[in-house]
């Protein structure tokens, strides 16, 4: 019963917005080209789902995110782990890493365009760089946060360095690593839209760019919906993976 009320309350605002739009449409309160009836949006949604265009573009964007994500996160994971373990390495590299981290990611775009061009290489580089910094930072903090007592257990048992890494340090910093991964996922998903808005001829960002130029508000809204939903689904997938890897954290019972 309580759940039903919660659900209904959550639907109140969206339904009110739809009703508002419907009322505006029925009584022709506006002549603006930008206004679209809910019915039209729904029809466009059905059309786009039936056709290939939306899914092809979404697929291309997802692939870009995936490649950039994997490259950037892997590099960040490696870099962050080394920086967390070795104080010497951190003392050499830490300051410049922290300096570069201060640059808001979007400010790298012009530099990359000049160096890499505007092709696929640019998009992947940009996405990977946006993934790298938060990943490295979270991993480094996770590794540094591994409790002394766990490390002492390792020392007492005379485990070698590599074993120590795989059995103590990595598992213990896994929660921080997953926090980093989730952050990175949402940032890379934003980055792909940005990269495609700047320079692209395909992908969901490009589709939005074109819809804007052709004043297709309905297509634009459907794209926004698709982008949000895809990001949401990817987030849930990542959460499932996290649940699996962190099942030891579950409280008994």
């Amino acid at each position: 019963m309580k759940k039903v009320i919660t659900l209904i309350l959550g639907l109140v605002l969206p339904v009110l917005i739809l009703i508002g739009m419907e009322v505006v449409a029925r009584f022709e309160l506006t002549t603006s080209q930008l206004f679209v009836e809910p019915k039209v949006i729904f029809e466009t949604l059905v059309d786009l789902i039936k056709g290939d265009e939306l899914f092809i573009n979404l697929g291309i964007s997802t692939l870009r995110v995936f490649i950039g994500f994997v490259l950037g996160a892997a590099a960040g994971l490696f870099f962050g782990t080394v920086m967390g373990i070795s104080r010497t390495f951190e003392s050499y590299v830490g300051p410049i890493f922290n300096a570069l981290r201060q640059v808001p990611v979007l400010a790298w775009i012009p530099l990359f365009i000049i160096w890499v061009g505007i092709d696929e290489g640019f998009k992947i580089t940009f996405i990977a760089v946006t993934a790298f910094f938060p990943m490295a930072l979270n991993t480094c903090e996770g590794v540094k946060g591994v409790s002394k007592s766990h490390l002492e257990v390792g020392a007492v048992l005379e485990i070698n360095r590599f074993k120590q890494l795989s059995t103590i340090i990595i598992p213990a910093s896994l929660p921080a690593i997953f926090t980093g991964l989730r952050l990175v996922l949402s940032i890379t998903w934003m980055a792909v839209v940005g990269a495609e808005l700047v320079a692209s001829s395909e992908g969901i960002g490009y589709m939005m760019y074109r819809a804007r130029q052709q004043l297709q508000v309905d297509t634009l809204l459907v794209c926004i919906l698709a982008v949000g939903l895809t990001g949401y689904v990817m987030n849930i997938l990542l959460e499932q993976i996290e649940h699996y890897f962190l099942r030891w954290r579950k409280v008994a019972g």
Partner: peptide, 27 residues
């Protein structure tokens, strides 16, 4: 009550990457 009223919509809108709003804002 306010949380139940606004929470779901807020969370749904939040899923859209911020740069995705640019085209519609320009329109």
């Amino acid at each position: 009550t306010i949380e139940k009223l606004f929470g779901p919509l807020f969370n749904a809108v939040r899923q859209v990457p911020i740069l995705g709003w640019i085209p519609i804002l320009i329109l």
